[in-house]
Design a protein around this nucleic acid. Structure first.
Length: 490
DNA sequence: GTTGAGCGTT
């Protein structure tokens, strides 16, 4: 007795009737079967005339309060197509200046899957984020029993980015998605952050966010204080960031200039410029990097392993292009890719096949020692795009879930910004910890050379062992100590 | 039949 609802690709398009499940929900997979690439649904609220998003939870689209009704629902697609429909495309420099290589997806490993999760379920879960090209659960050849991990591949880089930016509640367990070791270093790394020059004091963060959002999802905006006539905008999609570089845009009547966010050195300060290593495909080994990190990780084994890949970008530009490979075998090495330090896609580092827009190619910053300040700077710069995002408005509590693993955190922006369970209580994240060190690297690093902000790192508790939750709640707020480390000039 | 850090029979 399944009912049907009408779905069209967009307003004005011919609707198709899709069957809802017995519980009234519509499977995203059902939707995607008719509209490949869709990541959600919306409909026009007859009263407000505004579009409303349909709740999406674990691959299931939930009907509005009064059921699906007779109205027509429209597909929501990942933002990557956004720019196409943007009306101010006269500015074609951006388009011609596409990156040479399209950002490619790589397989992603999904760790921590419940034993019972099937490939189908895995797929359905991740379809929430975009088209899933492949989903597999690794099983014991003899018993057929799942090994508790699997692989997925997305059709769009943005979906991949989103997925990497958070942890996932799949079938009752929190799972991690990462770039597999085998793929590490083979993926593109492109900065998500752009530098906005010629800003006036009149241009506030909100203005920038609003303006640039039309090109793609903005995950962070940073305006130095006191006023310095520039700002940074971080996009979820590095491609969007890249496409804007070199352009002039008019915001509040002011012509601002967008360029690559590249730090400059100030020899007189402690400010280092380039930070962040990335691993290209090379194998030069900046052992120094293992220093501070290793130091931390020595006592903080899995610290922050799970928080998402920050979406920043600038940091990488210092060294990224000629940085060798990170030591893959270093077990003391935390999941830097998740931190955006090493260059996992989108987190940060520079694509190996990108030109060096700042002409910094000959700088061998890889040889620089990496101090805690550098780490902090790296985090500052690269880092907090997505984290900021997590702290921002879109977050949703993960179903008030206190999963079997015993925590309930997770702000989880979903593919289209809906979904999740808005009604769910957003509890403070459980403090991290494998080692009880709470704030882990973040606080540690930041406290080395700044005036705090980070701090706290409430100790404790946590879920010892693996799967330390994201400490969304008490991470240092962004924007406080950036100036302490990095100095930018236009 | 159990388990919970890891890294993919092709």
């Amino acid at each position: 007795m399944s009912s049907y609802l009408q779905v069209a690709e967009d307003e004005g398009e011919e609707p198709i009737e899709l069957p809802a499940e017995d519980d009234g929900t519509l499977l995203l997979s059902t939707l995607a079967a008719q509209f490949p690439g869709t990541c959600g649904l919306k409909y026009r609220n007859p009263e407000s005339r505004a579009m409303r998003g349909v709740r999406l939870v674990e691959g299931r689209l939930h009907p509005p309060e009064n059921g699906w009704g007779a109205c027509v629902y429209y597909c929501v697609f990942p933002k990557e197509n956004k720019r196409k429909s943007d009306d101010q495309l006269e500015n074609s420099t951006a388009k011609t200046k596409r990156m040479e290589t399209k950002l490619k997806c790589s397989d992603l490993i999904v760790l921590g899957l419940p034993w019972k999760t099937t490939e189908q379920q895995l797929r359905e879960y991740f379809e929430t984020f975009g088209e899933v090209l492949m989903a597999q659960v690794k099983k014991d050849i003899k018993s057929g029993q799942s090994k508790g991990f699997g692989f997925i591949r997305f059709g769009s880089y943005e979906s991949q980015m989103r997925v990497l930016g958070q942890r996932h509640l799949i079938d009752g367990r929190w799972c991690d998605v990462r770039i597999p070791n085998s793929k590490e270093g083979q993926i593109q790394q492109v900065p998500c952050k752009v530098f906005i020059g010629r800003c006036t004091e009149d241009i506030q963060a909100d203005d920038l966010r609003e303006y640039f959002s039309k090109f793609g999802e903005v995950t962070d905006v940073f305006i130095p204080k006191p006023f310095r006539a520039f700002a940074f905008v971080t996009f979820l999609d590095p491609e969007v960031a890249q496409s804007l570089c070199g352009e002039d845009h008019i915001i509040k009547g002011v012509s601002v200039h967008v360029s690559n966010a590249a730090p400059k050195t100030d020899p007189n300060s402690r400010a280092y410029t380039g930070v962040g290593g990335s691993r290209g495909q090379g194998s030069r080994e900046p052992k120094n990097l293992a220093g501070p990190f290793g130091g931390v990780s020595g006592t903080t084994q899995h610290y922050q392993q799970h928080h998402g890949a920050p979406g920043g970008g600038a940091m990488n530009q210092g060294t990224a292009w000629n940085q060798g490979s990170m030591n893959r075998g270093n077990l003391d090495m935390p999941n830097l890719q998740a931190l955006g330090i090493t260059g996992q896609a989108g987190a940060g580092s520079q694509a190996q096949n990108l030109n060096n827009p700042m002409g910094m190619g000959t700088l061998n910053l890889g040889a620089l020692p990496v101090s805690p300040a550098l780490v902090a700077a790296a985090l500052n710069q690269a880092g907090w795009g997505l984290i900021g995002n997590l702290q921002g408005g879109q977050q949703q509590g993960a179903a008030g879930d206190t999963g079997p693993q015993g925590f309930n955190n997770q702000a989880a922006p979903t593919a289209a910004g809906f979904g999740g369970t808005p009604g769910a209580p957003q509890q403070p994240a459980a403090p991290p910890t494998a080692t009880g060190q709470g704030g882990g690297l973040f606080n540690w690093g930041l406290n080395q050379g700044t005036t705090g902000g980070g701090g706290d790192a409430s100790q404790g508790g946590g879920t010892s062992g693996s799967n330390a939750p994201q400490q969304v709640g008490s991470w240092p707020q962004r924007g406080k100590q950036q100036e302490s480390f990095l100095k930018y000039e236009q």
